[in-house]
Design a protein around this nucleic acid. Structure first.
Lengths: 230, 230, 230, 230
DNA sequence: GATGAATGAGGATTCATTCAT
DNA sequence: CATGAATGAATCCTCATTCAT
């Protein structure tokens, strides 16, 4: 007996192929739309193209989303990760040095967000912010601000524990976010167009950023276990 | 003497007012186009709107630019600064510490590029790169690569003179460019949409970035005059 | 005995509930379609809406009617009353004055046709005549002409019996039909949109029309029992 | 020198053919739209068809009217005649019998409204009232109510001067409007589809209606000059 | 039979581009 | 040269109709 049968359970007996497809449609369309919006922008993406990439006809798209604009909003809604709660909990129970914490979060962020399709969302929203101010504000509140707050708490922990120099916390936050945003933008923009001239290796990029960042933050002659490593 | 004469510069002595106006047309159109392309993207910007903002009729736009796409390309061409030659020369003759050099260039960059309309060009190209790969490649070669090379030489100078730690130069470059690009993107994107929630003060932002960067680069216990200041 | 049995009529003894429902479908669809066509016109009425109002799915509609156009034709066919034979018989055996006859027929017409849903059909056909010329011609032959002929015979009877003035019979007919058609149009058109400004009371309207009509037709100083009454 | 030059004045020297056409466009489009809306209804009329009938392309239509719906409203606005003021003035100064007045107004109405394209507007609005309730209400206020009031005043004059029987004035009004509306509906509906079976001659129709109406209204044995003539 | 998901032809509307004035 | 009226290809979206379940 196939694994899918075990996982799928009885549902197969009740719903036919069509119905199973129906449930999958919105997701397939949102995936296709995310790809294309990221690639070409909202205005330059044709509804029919989205449908085609999702393997359905033009009309089907409008069966699930009342307009192209609603599709766009749904793409954003669908892809904003609510991961912050989880990450905030990890933060509370983290026991190592704050430098390790920074390294850990950068790594995790890259694996879970930066390297995934989700990073395209940031590029999309930054590119289209002026055309969708409400979406931009929404994203700001739901994603960016929680993210910045988490980072701020991490840096504050470092400062309070004497691991990091006392810095202008409100702006030091950007020393973490700027590299991340830059990487996401490149990955979905120039990085695609001129890969040969711009051979940006994400892992090495992040390593370099974290290295400089931590060297810049850590108290000189401070606790040895917090020292930047190679 | 009229104000327009002062603004127009020396050309006035040779040509009459009407002719001057005529010659100014393409520039006014390019300005208007840059603004609108930055604001709404290429596809969402209407040709008529560009013409209207430049104070001419729709037809006139096509008198100077054969198509909207050519207008776009002209906007890019017009705005890529050839400042690198000048800056490269300054680099050769710079006599202070490399840290001062970094501070100096960041300041100059902000004043001449970041704070000016030119920063919109970067936002524009990053947003539209996938739709105009050749423009993206062009910009990469004409602007980004020269910029990165200049930064690379600066960092190399620091390392060679023993002021900076030996770092992965190819990627350390991004520790300078990422904050700059991030700032330009915010200035023209989220920063416009949610200014109250995102009160990013450029001067303070740059100060924080440079501070952390230099702390992260400078050799511990190195030459005292190169130490990061605040 | 259940209510549905009473409504359904005798057929129940033979067929089960489900089957009865099934046989009722076309009728429910035709009813819904008549309502909607009258309300919004043929083109502006969506097939799905008709199905929804009839309590079935879109697909079912096309199970019974091969196309929206055929549905339209069926609506007309279904609702043209074959009451003329009956009325013609009544005419032959009517014994009172012709004025009474006019009063009687107007009353009966209003009760059986004007006040019923059937009046919507006239509004519908007059509104859509140009888009469905064959339907219009069909209606003309099956409903209007028989109706006019009946009216003509009534008026002729009045003239022949010396009750009515000798009038241009071919056109006097319209003195009866025009008020009826007008009332039907108002009932389904402006009367619905501006009821407060257009408080047309059908009974009073008909009374006024018949009153003027008969005063206008009846021979002055004629048989007293034929005189218009209040 | 041509007459048109004398009439047109200097304008010809200033404006070219194109400009003159531009001024004519809206009118040409409204004419075409009225024809088609009357013929096929709002929903069934394609914007392109309207444009084609006006001799322009699809796009041009939208240069003058922002949407098909606005075109519809403009058609109504354009064609509601403000003739009532003029007619009301005539009413005040009319010196003959009220019967002559009825005859006169019916004649004038037919010549100026009924026989003209304007009659199509009534058919259009009655057909589309349910889809455009605000237009229907507008028409009711601007056209129908003023019309009814004028008619009411005429009938009242007849009653007050002892020419007409005392009748239910509010509803007697419909004895005048119903025949007019009926004629307009037929002219644009069944009358077009089945002309051979429905050879409605407007003049004769109106004559018959007026004849019966006046016979029905005029006081028996009243002033001889008010007696219905034929 | 009944359903409703899917289709795609058709129609409204936009806008880059042309060209007569 | 400058204009802006006109065009029609391109695109969004609707809805009658089909058909697998």
């Amino acid at each position: 007996m196939s694994i899918s049968k075990l996982i799928g359970g009885q549902r197969d007996e009740v719903h036919g192929k069509r119905e199973r497809r129906k449930e999958a449609r919105p997701g397939e369309l949102l995936d296709a739309a995310l790809d294309l919006f990221v690639e070409k922008g909202f205005a330059a993406t044709r509804a029919e193209e989205v449908a085609a990439r999702a393997g359905v006809s033009k009309g089907t798209l409008f069966l699930y989303f009342p307009s192209k604009e609603e599709l766009f909003k749904a793409v954003v809604r669908e892809n904003i990760s609510g991961r912050f709660q989880e990450w905030n909990q990890e933060f509370a129970s983290f026991e190592g040095t704050t430098a390790d914490m920074v390294r850990y979060y950068m790594k995790v962020w890259w694996e879970r967000v930066g390297a995934s399709k989700a990073s395209g969302l940031t590029k999309l929203i930054i590119s289209e912010a002026r055309n969708f101010p409400d979406i931009a504000a929404f994203y700001q509140h739901e994603v960016i601000q929680p993210g910045q707050e988490l980072i701020r708490r991490i840096l504050q922990r470092g400062v309070e524990r004497g691991e990091f120099r006392p810095v202008d916390l409100d702006y030091a936050v950007y020393c973490v976010t700027a590299p991340m945003v830059f990487l996401m933008m490149m990955k979905h923009s120039l990085g695609v167009c001129v890969p040969e001239d711009y051979p940006l290796d994400p892992e090495r990029y992040i390593a370099a950023q974290v290295d400089t960042l931590l060297h810049g933050l850590i108290v000189r002659g401070g606790k040895s276990d917090g020292a930047p490593r190679k």
